[in-house]
Write a protein that binds this DNA or RNA. Sequence first.
RNA 1: GCGAAAGUGGCGGAAUUGGUAGACGCGCAGGAUUUAGGUUCCUGUGGGGUAAUCCCGUGAGAGUUCGAGUCUCUCCUUUCGCACCA
Length: 859
Amino acid sequence: MEQLYQPEIVERDAQQYWDEHRCFEVTEDTSKEKFYCLSMLPYPSGRLHMGHVRNYTIGDVISRFQRMQGKNVLQPMGWDAFGLPAENAAIKHKVHPAKWTYANIEEMRSQLKRMGYAYDWSREVTTCKPEYYRWEQWLFTRLMRKGLAYRANGIVNWDPVDQTVLANEQVIDGKGWRSGAPIERREMPQWFLKITEYADELLDWLDKLDDWPESVKTMQRNWIGRSEGIDIEFPVAGHDALRVFTTRPDTLFGVTYMAVAPEHPLAAGVARNNPGIAAFIDECRKVQASEAALETLEKKGMPIGVNAQHPLTGEDIPIWVANFVVMSYGTGAVMAVPGHDERDWEFATKYGLPIVQVIEPLDDATVDLSQDAFVAYGRLINSGEYDGMSYEEAFDALAAYFEAQGTGQRRVNYRLRDWLVSRQRFWGCPVPAIYDNDGEPEPVPDDQLPVVLPENVEVTGGASPLIDAPEFQNATDPDTGAPVRRESDTFDTFMESSWYYARYTSPGADAMLDERARYWLPVDQYVGGIEHAILHLIYARFYYKLLRDEGLVDSDEPFIRLLCQGMVIGETYYREDDKGHKTYYNPADVELERDAGGRIVGARLISDGQPVTPGPIEKMSKSKNNGIDPEALLSRYGADTVRLFVVSDVPPDQALEWSEEGVEGMFRFLKRLWRLVRECVERGEPAELDLSALTPQQKALRRTTHKTIAKVTDDITRRYAYNTAIAAVRELLNAVAKFNDDSALGRAVVREALRSSVLMLTPVVPHVCHSLWYALGGDNAVVDESWPVFDADAIESDSVEIVVQVNGKLRSRIQVAADADRDAMEEAALGDENVQRFIEGAAIRKVIVVPGKLVNLVV
RNA sequence: GCGAAAGUGGCGGAAUUGGUAGACGCGCAGGAUUUAGGUUCCUGUGGGGUAAUCCCGUGAGAGUUCGAGUCUCUCCUUUCGCACCA
């Protein structure tokens, strides 16, 4: 065994062993329980960042731990390779997006390999390869035939100067990122997937995802935004009836005005002959362009001079056009009940519209509608024959009435919209559709798939080059042989990331998935960033149901357990010039000054020794220059130290603060571990572990060993608490370091403690444990070893320390027999010297005894 | 505005079911080793107090309890998500 811990040698050896023995390549083995552990695949942006390292280390710890539990563990990796940054790089460096992407993948794959992650690289997926996306196209053509994929008008960001559609992130302050021209919202034909068809299922299954974070489920519920209500028609003389959606039909008698969105057809119709209304609508449109203004927008409206008729009372109700009504939700028109809706109240108060009470509280509390709207459910009043009804009774009665009249119906409304999947971009999966002469889209037949993205085009940043590529655009009709035009749109990249986890199970299959998918799916553990809580995780769940309904998988949800890891954050340092412009400095180039108590009192740039100002601790980013390159750490400390750091400090779902000293501490720990093992080995071979001959000290160390095994196992399996698991192992090693017993039997107890520690640390720091395990006499490579077995007998003890409280305050700790009963514990407590000082002269009123733990004397 | 999570030493955090507050580590201080720095090792480290298993102490205030960091209520602060949702 080497004298000192040398990570570069240790890590090279371990990785070589894993490669040569193909340790992480798995097949479908029905004799073992399978475990599919998945980390979100990266976008190949160029280099690994600390966020990746944290994500993938957590996944790797779980995978390696499950493997030690005897499971058949699949842990794959791939590349989310389509997307805008590749196009941007292509424009900037005049290289094809494919070339840039593949070069980045090479670089990042080698970085991942240096981290020692236990991936089955034989299943690697690269989403920009035709062999991958052809199956996405294949499924899409099926969805077209089922009517689940359709073409309709959608709103896009249109750059009038570059004559192109922009992605949201290319619109900065309402202007095009390259042209600087104000961006228009333009309606154009787009492709959609009917996710709303699955809205109820997506919502209902959330309740069954017990091992998902509550926060993610809440976000998804809000995003789906299911609400039950009634569509009601209000007749309008000389116009089509005005249809509104309401969740509060019980307040129908309180309607005092109607409000429609500026884009509503009724408003648009009136505006043709009314310049005032037209001007107002125009004003609303301008404001909408700037998203920021929307937040603080004042509620504004104008009466359009047309009345609707109340469907029950026949009264005239004025119709207003109002900026707070949005066209994309419900019907784009609302019935306003200022007495029982906060927003309607605010608007009515501003414009002097009448406010009527039609609901009274169930508890007969007083209601003052001049102060505030009363929004709670209650009992109907001033509502004719419906008076006295509850919310539910009124809902049912009114729904039945309008359904019988044919002027309304119950409806479930969703916030969720159908998924707009087409993009007018080049670097994406081509939408597999062709247009015949009448412009109707048709699916590309199976034998003509994949529709391959051409490589001989130039990406300029203007319109997609697919539009001007005749060899791509010109296709023939499969039935008639007539020339047809090919769709030039590509898919949203969320399409590829919605099913990659399924493709990993069927590498090389000449189908989207094959029977192997049924063995591996669903994913047992998914690990990724919280930023994907809504979009990616809803789309992937939706897509899985599409796969299920196509007969490709036989379960309902793709991810059983979900872990969302927190951000990696770091200190920021800057200097500000006269104009208030801040220049940020990387924390690696800054040195801190402390006072004698260890408090930080200043920070200086190492290069010039001049002070810099500490800013807030923020997510690592280019703009704040507080990112740490994992590569530099890898060469300095090795992969194990970096792996240890990212899981040791905080639980995985919390933000992890970068600290140079923290990394040093991890490196120090590994050096210390190495030394403890070396010293143990140098002391010579131990005796057989004869349990009947142990001294009390030896028993105590064994107890610590097995208590640690129990705790670490529980921390990892149940709590995801790697930080406390590692702390427990450190405590055990501290106990080993203090253990002064060089007898043969003492060495046996130490060796058991060290072997257990090495096994427990293997998932986190697999390289160093590979070496240490052999040093401690391991016959097999530690990667093939099982998790240490907890020995319940070892933790049994003759006596335990209990706590004695007087009036709930800690007064003493005493030793009692482990099996002491209540009376014995009470007696021992009363006999304690220090306890007596506090109960002297007082009467004991009550004694609370928690067996094996504490006695509380109430005086 | 709505929803969710959180607030504990100089710092990151631990305390899992209401039962020993501060595990583990960073930093700092003292000592040993070293020509020196670094490394490594040992000791100490919430505040107060000469000291004691003495007092105080988990954002603020109240409450429940023999006992509250943990439960309840009110308030303050921070972070995240959604945002005119009818």
